[in-house]
């Protein structure tokens, strides 16, 4: 386990997407995108129990979307902007693969057509 307080494993696109598929969790990310907040400060913004907020924070942490820093007895949370990188990487791999399939499909069809011509 790394000593760092960042999540141990790199976040997967699926984990990021699932974590973001909840309005409360997205609202939490908005709150901490420019500043660190303690769990209690986050909970104060929602009509939810502290326990429910803790669960949301846990999901966001596991997805790599939240960084946690200890300040005395408090734990402060902030947005990890780089957490969306895996989603972007997914597309960075997706399109070259897709175009390779396009090339194969078009060239196969085009060759067949040319072969048939007198």
């Amino acid at each position: 386990m790394p000593r760092s307080e960042q999540p141990a494993s790199a976040s997967t696109p699926d984990a990021v997407l699932k974590a973001l598929a909840d309005p409360h969790r997205r609202q939490i990310l908005r709150l901490v995108q420019h500043r660190e907040l303690a769990a209690g400060q986050i909970a104060a913004q929602f009509p939810l129990t502290q326990q429910a907020i803790s669960l949301h924070i846990s999901v966001l942490r596991k997805a790599g979307l939240l960084a946690e820093r200890r300040d005395g007895t408090r734990r402060l949370y902030s947005l990890r902007h780089e957490a969306l990188d895996p989603v972007r990487s997914l597309l960075a791999e997706f399109w070259p693969d897709a175009l390779a399939r396009l090339k194969t499909a078009v060239e196969r069809a085009h060759q067949t057509k040319e072969t048939r011509q007198p």
């Binding site: 972007r88 597309l91 175009l99 090339k103 078009v106 069809a109 085009h110």
Partner: peptide, 11 residues
């Protein structure tokens, strides 16, 4: 951010 991809097709 953008993602780009290119290929050359013989058609």
């Amino acid at each position: 951010p953008t993602v780009t991809a290119t290929t050359r097709i013989a058609a």
